[in-house]
Amino acid sequence: MKNMLDVQIGRLTLRNPLILASGTAGFGFEMENLFGLNNVGAIVTKTITVEPRIGNPPPRVCETPCGMLNSIGLANPGLITFKNDIIPELKKLDTKIIVSVGGENEDEYCEIVNELRSVSHIAAFELNLSCPNVVRGGINLGKNPKIVQDFIYKLKTITDKPLWSKLSPQTSDILSLSLASQAGGADAVVIANTIPGMAINIWTREPMLGGITGGLSGAAIHPVAVALVYSLRNKLEIPIIGCGGITKPEDAIELILAGADAIQLGSGNFIDSLLPIKTIEFMKEYLNKCEFNSIKEIVGKIKLKT
């Protein structure tokens, strides 16, 4: 009973399937003040790029029906500051650290992974192939299955650490991109990221975001994530990490039933900073109530009428 929540993501064992999504947990220590990170399975850091990025012009967030738009623009201190100043702090955190890697081109991803490959307490890299808020790189790198496959293959030659491929929901063929990630050697796919979106103040006729368009997250996109995960169920050999619009504990179970081996919680943190802990507690409660011994037993166990 004790380990009913532990999951295996490739070679990586997580104490539970709840992962804090990139961009919503900072570098972890900011959240340490609110609740102990020793509760969560892993955290994915804010995306790191080679050069520091100041981010997009404000306003960077706005409310939308059942969700929010963001246009942060991968604001981050850059690789060198991350390595010298932030990594020593990450060592203090009692959870698995996944570093989100971004870049304008393949070489930048390679440079980051190469520079960080020997840092022992980085458990894995998550390749951000799906940020909608940058002009170069991001979503554009993750559009073509052949490019994705070759790119991940190349990164695999640089590092032994697990690589997670975080894909955009804005694709006509999530399966091909997931299979390409798998063929390239990815250890997991993360399904998905925010959906590109836009809002306009009709009275000022100005866009609500400084970056004009942004990424939609929150409850509004949860059914999209469930459908995408479900579409990949039983079609991949590598684990699926479901991500999108979890705003209540039940949403996490829904993604797991659809086929996710683990889940990432993002904007939901903003509306209730205790949501990660509540979700972990609910998972145990759910398993007990439905008489399962392990969270692994319910992965993809949606009941379909025959």
Binding site: T24, E30, N33, L34, I54, P58, R60, V61, N70
Partner: peptide, 22 residues
Amino acid sequence: EQRMACGYGVCQGCAIETKSGY
């Protein structure tokens, strides 16, 4: 003031421009 999402510095949503950057 600025529109805000998290309130504690993780999302970087409430940036304003200052003389020393965002």
